[in-house]
């Protein structure tokens, strides 16, 4: 089997365009990227089987038939992509409904930690970490005097 150069080129372009769209913020574009990528992958599956006549017994002689197995796989993949498309569209709509746009937002919690990193701070409430010893906790919590253990830490 030799590669079909047309397929190879189309695959490359579909994937390139798909990836470019995938890296966007707008969910609609991302979805379009997914569709293009899916098409590229399907075409790639197709290159795994030889071309020929429709694989229908009686219509095409067996040796001239195109390979049916990749076709079955592609069919499955196409339909799965359809389901995904529907789901992503619903997601895009819901996102728009909630936020007024369909752009993918950055994670808030990650942003918080990146800010900490920029300010050169630790995770903050680390009980074992640095920081002063002032007992910010409920002072009524203790019921037995534990003398000067804080002192102990310093004199080591």
């Amino acid at each position: 089997m030799t590669p079909n150069l047309t397929y190879v080129i189309v695959i490359g372009v579909l994937v390139a365009a798909g990836v470019t769209l995938l890296l966007e913020r707008s969910l609609t574009r991302v979805l379009m990227g997914v569709i293009l990528l899916g098409n590229g992958a399907n075409l790639l599956l197709l290159t795994g089987g030889q071309a020929g006549g429709p694989p229908i017994v009686g219509t095409t002689p067996q040796e001239e038939m195109s390979d049916p197995l990749p076709q079955a796989m592609i069919l499955t993949a196409i339909v799965i992509t359809l389901g995904m498309t529907a789901f992503l569209l619903a997601l895009a709509y819901r996102s728009w409904h909630l936020n007024g746009h369909d752009e993918v937002q950055d994670d808030v919690e990650d942003r918080r930690i990146m800010d900490l990193a920029e300010r050169d701070e630790g995770p903050g409430d680390a009980d074992a970490g640095s920081g002063d010893d002032d007992d910010d906790d409920d002072p009524t919590g203790g019921n037995r005097p534990v003398a000067t253990t804080a002192d102990a830490g310093r004199t080591g």
Binding site: A41, L45, G48, G49, M73, F87, L88, L91
Partner: peptide, 21 residues
């Protein structure tokens, strides 16, 4: 989650295509 997973699925599908080819 969905978009990353979709990308991984496409990569897997491409891998399958390559294996079969």
């Amino acid at each position: 989650y969905v978009v990353v997973s979709l990308l991984s699925s496409v990569i897997f599908l491409i891998a399958i295509g390559l294996v079969y080819a």
